[in-house]
Design a protein around this nucleic acid. Structure first.
Lengths: 122, 122
DNA sequence: GAAAGTGTATTATCCGTAGTAGTACACCCA
DNA sequence: TGGGTGTACTACTACGGATAATACACTTTC
């Protein structure tokens, strides 16, 4: 569920953050759902508890989860539109970079449609 | 021309690489155009010559420029379609991430069109 | 009340990468 | 010959990611 890539250049805590957002967007993690504990998830992934804690703290900072000492971490009441905006951040940068490199809007749209056709979201 | 952002999280040599590709795509840097020397560009940007050299070496490795000891570095014969593919690499990743987060193809295209309207490439 | 599990905090350490600094070499050209 | 070129090398610093080992306060459960 929270599978990560230890060889990736993307930091583990950032992968965990994004993965959580994904699961929320897909409706797999619903409001009030309890997240795995810091220690158990760390053990499952084979990473340090501090790394998981860092991801959780950023998720809480952004209002995606809330944590209670002694009880655990839980999915917050989600504003899906807000999360979508978050998902757009990296996308916007990539679009601007492509436009800078003289790629046209139409080319990008075509590209997306091609990618979308072969994409299965599960 | 080769303005870079020293505060960015993106490594300087990578910024230089991308900037060069941009300038080639725009037709500003044409085949056989001489690049600034490693030392002069380093001085101009206020960075270490090694950092510029690293960017040049990657550009040469990817066939975008060619370097001749004692003479300088020059823009190669460019396959623009190939360069465009390079520009698409980061873009594709961003698209896939967005799709994973349950954003639709149509939403992405609309997003691009909005960005494209307010975009001036100079 | 005790124990186990929770998030949180702290400190120290290791490691890889980016970047700097300095130097040296072989090359080309005027 | 001298100055400019790319290239190579070593040493060093700085920073962030990640680990390791504790410790603490809290909640839940028995």
């Amino acid at each position: 569920m929270f599978n990560i890539d230890l060889t990736s250049r993307v930091p583990i805590y950032e992968q965990l953050y994004k993965k959580t957002v994904e699961l929320v967007m897909k409706g797999i993690l619903k409001e009030q759902t309890q997240m795995p504990s810091v220690r158990s998830l760390a053990k499952e992934l084979g990473v340090n508890p501090n790394t998981v804690a860092k991801a959780y703290q950023q998720l809480e900072h952004d209002g995606i989860i809330y944590s209670v000492a002694g009880r655990g971490s839980f999915i917050s009441k989600i504003n899906h539109q807000e999360l979508k905006e978050y998902a757009f951040e990296d996308f916007d940068k990539a679009v601007i970079d492509a436009l800078k490199a003289s790629v046209t809007v139409d080319e990008l749209c075509d590209r997306i449609k091609n990618i979308g056709e072969g994409f299965r979201n599960d």
